[in-house]
């Protein structure tokens, strides 16, 4: 029974091969330049610059046709996915009103914390309209640009550009500079990658460096809740609620080092993170004393860290905020 099926399959495969062979027969007559050249002996071919990773050229994805396709993708599936999975609440965009109200808003660098692949879709959907359609996303070159199809998809749908995770290399920073000069804004995750355990990581200097290099201000952003929805290592997303808090734009002060500026950005995101679970005034007060709960979580290791994470998430959008009693003047 089994044998007969196998025989039948073999016969079909053979017939198919013959057909293909016959169809391909004419091509045999076409050699170079229709085919890759063979390499003469004794010649050393210099290693080809890989078109992948940090060197993937995303220029095509910013041409009009690709842009309009992307607009449809962003306003369609990405928006829908972000909405269904993350039901975002977006606050703080009014802090950017000075910039958005200009006829031609200057490019900025958005520096959100990073917990999930969903962050990028959410960011694209959340940034004020003035920037939304001229936005590029810095994506890890070693993850999103390691395969042709992945690279093409990222470039087309997210307008992603490849950036080295560890040290922002020359290629990346030149690319970013020219893009910003062209009026593109950038989303970059200063943490350099998704959080491994649900807590944040210390910011790497990428955003600060690029800001200093290009002159574009950094907008700190805190994204709350995506870690619980589709964090690193989760097999499938668990829909939930998120909150995206935008902060006021920051610029490197005169003579400020990248390191210090980076620390300031991290502090700003930390304050926004505090604001997301408490309120503006509490966060400001704690920022003044340096007692905002750190993004990177408590110092402990092991279960206490996870335990604290659960507490933190309870305070976030998933949990209910405790409200104090309304107190208008007491009228007796």
């Amino acid at each position: 029974m089994v044998d007969r099926n196998l025989q039948r399959a073999q016969r079909v495969a053979g017939a198919a091969e013959d057909a293909v062979r016959r169809a391909a027969m004419p091509l045999r007559n076409f050699g170079f330049p229709y085919r890759t050249p063979t390499v003469p002996r004794g010649v050393e071919v210099p290693p080809e610059v890989s078109g992948l990773g940090a060197h993937y050229d995303t220029e095509w994805a910013r041409r009009p046709l690709a842009s309009s396709v992307r607009t449809m993708i962003i306003e369609g599936p990405i928006r829908l996915t972000a909405r269904v999975l993350t039901s975002p609440e977006i606050v703080g965009t009014d802090r950017l009103a000075d910039l958005t109200s200009l006829d031609d808003p200057p490019p900025v660098i958005f520096a959100p914390n990073h917990h999930s692949h969903l962050d990028t879709g959410l960011m694209i959907r959340s940034v004020p309209l003035a920037w939304r359609h001229k936005l590029v996303v810095a994506a890890a070159a070693d993850y999103f640009f390691d395969k042709k199809w992945k690279a093409a998809l990222s470039a087309l749908s997210l307008n992603a550009i490849p950036i080295d995770r560890e040290v922002t290399g020359r290629t990346s920073s030149d690319l970013v500079k020219s893009l910003i000069d062209d009026g593109y804004s950038l989303v970059i995750y200063p943490e350099g990658g998704r959080s491994p355990d649900g807590w944040g990581q210390d910011f790497k200097g990428g955003a600060a460096y690029l800001s200093a290099r290009t002159g574009a201000p950094v907008v700190p952003v805190f994204i709350d809740g995506t870690g619980a929805i589709f964090g690193k290592g989760m097999k499938r997303p668990k829909p939930g609620r998120t909150k995206v808090v935008f902060g006021a734009a920051l610029r490197a002060d005169e003579g400020e080092s990248t390191r210090r500026f980076n620390a300031r950005i991290q502090a700003a995101v930390t304050t926004l993170g505090d604001e997301a679970i408490t309120d503006f005034w509490t966060a400001r007060q704690r920022a003044a004393t340096g007692t905002n709960p750190p993004l990177t979580g408590p110092e402990h290791t092991g279960w206490r860290r996870d335990w604290a994470l659960a507490e933190r998430r309870k305070l976030g959008t998933a949990g209910l905020r405790r409200r104090q009693q309304r107190r208008w003047p007491d009228l007796g």
Binding site: D279, F280, W281, Q324, R326, W328
Partner: peptide
């Protein structure tokens, strides 16, 4: 703005002047 409102109103620190409150 929502930030100031949400920070002060729930704490009871946002008042509307009451010109008829003899105690205040």
């Amino acid at each position: 703005g929502d930030r100031v409102y949400d920070a002060f109103e729930p704490r009871g620190l946002l008042f509307q002047h009451d010109a008829e409150d003899p105690d205040n």
